[in-house]
C-alpha cells in the first residue's frame, strides 16, 4: 500500500486512487485514416516494464482528477508525479 502525492490534494494512501494504465498514449486525432495495425497499436499494445513505468492515476475517492505517475514497478517507488498534459520530468 504505497503513498501517492496527488498534485491537487497532497500525499494520500493508495486506496484512494485507481490506476488507469500506461500514460502518454494519445488518442489518434484522425482514427479513420489509420490502418487496422496502426489502430490496434493504439488500442491494445501496452508496455510492461520492470523499472520506471509512466502511468495514469485517478484520485477516484478524492478530487477525481487524473494525473501521471512515474513508478518503479520493481519496488513501487514513485519518482515523479505530474499533471495531465505535462511531459515526464524524468527519463
Amino acid at each position: 500500500m504505497f503513498l501517492i502525492n496527488c498534485p491537487y490534494c497532497g500525499e494520500r494512501d493508495q486506496s484512494e486512487f485507481s490506476c488507469g494504465g500506461e500514460a502518454h498514449i494519445e488518442r489518434p486525432k484522425q482514427p479513420t485514416e489509420l490502418s487496422d495495425d496502426q489502430w490496434a497499436e493504439y488500442l491494445f499494445m501496452r508496455k510492461n516494464v520492470k523499472g520506471i513505468q509512466f502511468e495514469r492515476w485517478n484520485h477516484i475517492h478524492g478530487c477525481r482528477k487524473w494525473f501521471n505517475v512515474a513508478r518503479d514497478t520493481s519496488n513501487d517507488k514513485i519518482h515523479a508525479v505530474y499533471k495531465m498534459g505535462e511531459r515526464p520530468p524524468i527519463k
Binding site: G20, E26, R27, R56, N58, M84
Partner: peptide
C-alpha cells in the same frame, strides 16, 4: 466520461 474530458 471524466477520463476523456480530462485527458483527451
Amino acid at each position: 466520461l471524466e477520463d476523456y474530458l480530462q485527458t483527451e
